[in-house]
C-alpha cells in the first residue's frame, strides 16, 4: 500500500476506532455484550486497516471553536438560502453567475477542507477547484465575495494556534 508512508499514531487510531464504535452502537441500537464486543473488535480492525490516511488529530480546543463556528455558518446558510430563493422565484431571473478566484491565507489541510465545505454548503456559492490553499468558486451573486472573505477570516481565527502543515 503506497499510502502507508506516514507513521501511524496510536492516539489517532484510538479516536478513529471510537468514532466507528459510536456509529456501530447507533446502527445496531442494542446493548448486549456480544454486540458491543464485536463492534469494538471490528472498529479497531477497520481503523487499523485504514490507518494510512490523515494523521490529523484535532485538539479539544479546536473542536470547541468549530462547534462555536457552526451556528454562525447556519445563520449564513439561512440568509443566503432566502436570497437564492428570491433570485430563483424572481420572474426575470436576475442572477450573475461568475467565477471568483480566492487566494486564502490558510495554511492547514483541515482549514482548507472546512472552508471549501462551508462555501459549498452555503447556497449561491460552490467550490469548483482547490489547489493548495487557492480556491476557485462559482458564485451566483455579486455580494458573495465579501461573505467568503468573512468566512475565511473566521476559519483563520479557529486555526490560529495550530502548526501549519500545508
Amino acid at each position: 500500500m503506497a499510502t502507508r508512508s506516514r507513521p501511524v499514531s496510536s492516539e489517532f487510531l484510538f479516536f478513529k476506532a471510537m468514532a466507528l464504535f459510536v456509529f456501530w452502537v447507533l446502527l445496531s441500537a442494542s446493548f448486549e455484550w456480544i454486540h458491543l464486543g464485536l463492534g469494538l473488535f471490528f472498529s479497531f480492525i477497520v481503523a487499523w486497516l485504514n490507518s494510512g490516511h490523515s494523521p490529523f488529530v484535532p485538539k479539544f480546543r479546536l473542536w470547541l471553536r468549530i462547534l462555536l463556528y457552526l451556528p454562525w455558518l447556519f445563520y449564513k446558510i439561512i440568509q443566503s438560502s432566502l436570497h437564492l430563493s428570491k433570485l430563483i422565484l424572481h420572474p426575470a431571473l436576475p442572477i450573475v453567475p461568475h467565477m471568483i478566484s480566492v487566494e486564502s491565507k490558510l495554511r492547514h489541510h483541515a482549514a482548507v477542507v472546512l472552508l471549501g465545505n462551508s462555501i459549498t454548503l452555503t447556497p449561491g456559492t460552490i467550490t469548483v477547484e482547490v489547489d493548495g490553499s487557492n480556491l476557485i468558486v462559482h458564485a451566483m451573486d455579486k455580494n458573495d465575495e465579501a461573505a467568503i472573505k468573512q468566512m475565511e477570516s473566521k476559519i483563520a481565527h479557529i486555526f490560529k494556534d495550530e502548526e501549519p502543515d500545508l
Binding site: L84, P123, G124, I126, H138
Partner: peptide
Amino acid sequence: SHAVSLTDSL
C-alpha cells in the same frame, strides 16, 4: 448545482 445545494443544506 447551486439549486441542488440549496435543497441539501436548508
